[in-house]
Design a protein around this nucleic acid. Structure first.
Length: 370
DNA sequence: CGCTGGACAAGGCACCTATA
DNA sequence: TATAGGTGCCTTGTCCAGCG
C-alpha cells in the first residue's frame, strides 16, 4: 500500500487497485472523495478541482454540495409556487405575479429542473414573448429573474441564467410631449364647459386624474390662489376609494394668476355650496366622483380637435411639469409642485423644458431676422 | 337607434426604495 | 449612478343599460 503525500491532499492506493483521495478542508475537517478512482490521475483531477474551489472561495463541504445537486434537479414549477407563497408583497402585486407566472413563465418552465434553465433557454423563451408589449415583456422577465435569484441565494444555482442585458427595464414608449399654451386653450374649449377647469388645472397645476376627481370646494382658495391636494380617489371595481395622493404626499399648489378666474367661475357655475362639494362630480349624482371614462369620452374629441390625437389626460400633468420648469422652477420646486418624492422624476421634465427653451431661443432669433 | 355614462379587465406607464 | 424589485394609478378596448 503506497500513500503519496502531496502539497494538497492525499492519494492512497487501496488493496483492490483503486485510488482514494482526501484532503483537509478550510473547515479543518477531513474530506474524502465520494467514490474511489480507477486511475491515479483521476484522483489527482478531483483534488485539483477541490483545490480550485477553495482558491476561488467557492468551496463548501462536499456533502452539502450533493444536497445542492439534488435540489437543482427540483422542478421550477413547485419552486416558483413556494417562492410566491413565501413572499411578503401587497395583494395587488401578488395577483400580478400570479397572472404573469400562469400566462408566460410556468407554461415554459414548470416541468423543467432548475439546473436545466440555462442562459440560452432563457434567451429563447424571452424572444418568444411579444415584443410589441415591451412593458409586459420586461416585467415578466424581471419576475423570472427574481425567482431564479432566490434560487441563487438558496445555493441551488451557482449563477442566474437570466443574463440578457437591460431586458428587465421597461422603457417609456412615448416621449414626453407637452401641450403648448395655445393647445391647452383649444383642448379646454373643445370640452364641455363643466370640464374647462378640469383641463386648465390639470395642465397648469399638474394634478393627477385621481386628485382632480376628488377636489372639493374647500380645497380651493381663490384668495391665495392655492389648491390644496389632500386626497385622491381610486376605483376598486365600481367603488370609489378615497385616500391620500399617490406616495402619500399632500401638497398645496399655486395657481398661475391667469387661471384663477376660470376656476372661480367654475366654482360659481357648477359647484354646490357646501365646502365638501365636489368640483367635478359624476353626472346625475353630485356626491359621486367623476369616472375617468366619462371625462375620457369628451377628451378624445377634444384632443382630435386640438390636433393632438395621441395625447392622454395624464399628459396634461406632464404639461404642467414642463411649464413649471420652463418658467424657471428648480427641480426641487417642480417636485414639490407635482408631489414627486424623487428628483429623477422631476429631472425628466427639466430636460424636456431645456429642449423647449432652446426652441424658443431659436424662434426669438428668427423674429429678430437672423 | 344613436348617444351617453359607466363597469370592467388587461395592459402600460409612473414612480418609489433598496442596494451594489 | 444604475439596476433590481415593487407598487400605484391611468389608459385602452369592449360591452352594456338607460334615455330621448
Amino acid at each position: 500500500m503506497t500513500r503519496a503525500k502531496r502539497d494538497f491532499g492525499t492519494i492512497r492506493k487501496r488493496a483492490n487497485g483503486r485510488y482514494q483521495a482526501y484532503y483537509m478542508g478550510p473547515d479543518q475537517g477531513f474530506h474524502r472523495a465520494p467514490s474511489t478512482f480507477q486511475t491515479k490521475s483521476d484522483a489527482e483531477g478531483w483534488l485539483a478541482a477541490e483545490r480550485r474551489l477553495i482558491q476561488n472561495d467557492e468551496w463548501s463541504p462536499a456533502k452539502s454540495r450533493r444536497a445542492k445537486v439534488r435540489r437543482a434537479t427540483e422542478a421550477f414549477g413547485p419552486y416558483a409556487e413556494a417562492w410566491l407563497a413565501q413572499r411578503e408583497i401587497k395583494q395587488r402585486t401578488r395577483a400580478l405575479y400570479r397572472r404573469q407566472l400562469d400566462r408566460f413563465i410556468l407554461p415554459a418552465f414548470a416541468e423543467m429542473s432548475l439546473r436545466d434553465i440555462t442562459p440560452p433557454v432563457v434567451r429563447t423563451w424571452y424572444t418568444s414573448i411579444d415584443p410589441t408589449r415591451p412593458t409586459q415583456r420586461a416585467h415578466v422577465y424581471s419576475l423570472l429573474r427574481a425567482i431564479l435569484n432566490e434560487a441563487v441565494r438558496d445555493d441551488i444555482l451557482a449563477k442566474n441564467p437570466c443574463t440578457i442585458r437591460s431586458a428587465g427595464i421597461a422603457k417609456r414608449q412615448r416621449p414626453i410631449d407637452p401641450a403648448s399654451p395655445e393647445e391647452i386653450v383649444t383642448l379646454m374649449n373643445e370640452m364641455p364647459d363643466r370640464y374647462w377647469a378640469f383641463v386648465i388645472i390639470a395642465a397648469w397645476c399638474g394634478l393627477r386624474f385621481g386628485e382632480l376627481a376628488e377636489l372639493r370646494r374647500g380645497d380651493i382658495d381663490v384668495k391665495t390662489g392655492l389648491i390644496h391636494v389632500r386626497r385622491a380617489v381610486t376605483w376598486d371595481h365600481s367603488t370609489p376609494v378615497v385616500g391620500t395622493p399617490k406616495n402619500g404626499q399632500q401638497r398645496s399648489v399655486s395657481m398661475p394668476p391667469h387661471i384663477v378666474d376660470v376656476v372661480s367661475a367654475h366654482l360659481d357655475r357648477f359647484v354646490e355650496r357646501p365646502s365638501d362639494a365636489l368640483l367635478f362630480p359624476a353626472v346625475g349624482d353630485s356626491t359621486r366622483q367623476i369616472h375617468s371614462n366619462t371625462v375620457r369620452r369628451h377628451w378624445i374629441k377634444a384632443r382630435e380637435a386640438a390636433g393632438r390625437p395621441h395625447m392622454r389626460i395624464h399628459d396634461l400633468r406632464h404639461t404642467g411639469a414642463v411649464l413649471a420648469a420652463l418658467a424657471g422652477a428648480t427641480p426641487k420646486e417642480t417636485m414639490d409642485r407635482l408631489g414627486h418624492l424623487s428628483a429623477e422624476a422631476a429631472m425628466r421634465y427639466q430636460h424636456v423644458a431645456r429642449g423647449r427653451d432652446a426652441e424658443i431661443a431659436a424662434k426669438l432669433s428668427e423674429l429678430a431676422g437672423y
